[in-house]
């Protein structure tokens, strides 16, 4: 008898420990282990090597068959993509420090290019908010879009912390548009400002460059940890914040809404029980003449109908 009890006790303890362990793992799961993305394809964009030639933009247009973003200057049209749009999947921005600020420190104003495009997050917010999984992370790394699933709710556009997804506003059959990671830009870059490889190696390479030339870079690999990590890694000579790259915590974006969704079953059960209890308590022993207090309301009632007549 005793041993049986003991066995039961042990089994119960094991079960409890097991579930505790499982829930512990669950909590950890929100802190995504970046190692699982080590072999996804990543790209380093080194702003200090970039010469702003926009060959990458032209290559992107050609590969994806996107029309130029025409702007007219004194009668001549140029392709001047200013910001990301349905047709601009990548743009080259430029930042120049306020000369007065630099003069105060007795140096030339710093400046930098920035090639913007989809960051291809390890755990993308766009994919986590999409109700139909039209946006999804592939095993190789790219975050892709399937227009045959999309309903056009545009939640992805609002949830992306980098504000990357853009829309075809003037189309009766609109699509969400963004970089699809075909890396035409990487192949086209004439100065090696863009290099691609497995994410782990790219991160190591980025840190090697910073270590080798600490004066050339700000000591931060943007995208290594931001929002749970991205496949697009940015090295720059000026602070990333100044380049309009949002400072983001290393937590995965969906960790904000995941707990809400995971709490739902509990809510359904709890509210169901509460309603059931209330119903039982108020309807269990219903009196046949349970008519409240007819005196007061009937007086009001007849009065009201007279008033309005």
């Amino acid at each position: 008898m005793k041993s049986l009890d003991r066995r039961k006790f042990l089994a119960a303890t094991a079960a409890a420990a097991g579930s505790a362990l499982a829930s512990g793992q669950k909590a950890e799961a929100r802190e995504v282990d970046a190692r699982q993305f080590d072999r996804t394809i990543a790209v380093i964009y080194d702003a200090t090597r970039c010469i702003g030639c926009r060959t990458c933009v032209a290559a992107c247009r050609k590969k994806n068959n996107l029309p130029p973003d025409e702007h007219e200057f004194e009668g001549v049209k140029f392709d001047v993509p200013e910001e990301l749009s349905a047709n601009n999947w990548t743009v080259l921005q430029v930042y120049r420090e306020d000369p007065k600020e630099a003069a105060l420190e007795g140096r030339e104003p710093k400046w930098s290019f920035l090639k913007r495009n989809c960051m291809h997050c390890n755990v993308p917010a766009c994919a986590s908010v999409c109700p139909v999984a039209a946006l999804y992370k592939t095993e190789e790394g790219p975050v892709l879009y399937d227009e045959t699933r999309c309903i056009g709710c545009r939640y992805c556009m609002l949830a992306c912390p980098f504000q990357v997804p853009r829309y075809e506003w003037l189309d009766w059959k609109p699509r969400v548009r963004k970089c699809d990671w075909n890396r035409a830009c990487v192949k086209a870059c004439p100065v090696g400002a863009l290099v691609e490889g497995p994410r782990k190696e790219m991160i190591e390479e980025a840190h090697r460059r910073i270590e080798a030339e600490p004066d050339r870079y700000v000591p931060h690999v943007y995208g290594e940890h931001e929002a749970g990590g991205t496949s697009y890694l940015i090295l720059a000579g000026v602070e990333h914040e100044k380049l309009d790259l949002p400072p983001l915590p290393p937590t995965v974006r969906s960790s904000i809404s995941d707990p809400i969704m995971e709490a739902l079953p509990g809510w359904i059960v709890g509210l169901g029980l509460a309603l059931g209890a209330a119903y039982k308590l108020t309807h269990g022993e219903e009196k046949p003449d349970g008519e409240g207090h007819p005196g007061a309301s009937s007086r009001e009632n007849s009065k009201a109908s007279e008033d309005e007549a």
Binding site: C130, P131, C150, I151, G152, C153, R154, E168
Partner: peptide
């Protein structure tokens, strides 16, 4: 954007999404 696809969430599930 695509009202004719409004039924998609009923068959194309993504239960992590609030939407």
């Amino acid at each position: 954007g695509r009202p004719w696809a409004i039924w998609h969430p009923l068959v194309m599930w993504q239960p992590r999404s609030v939407m």
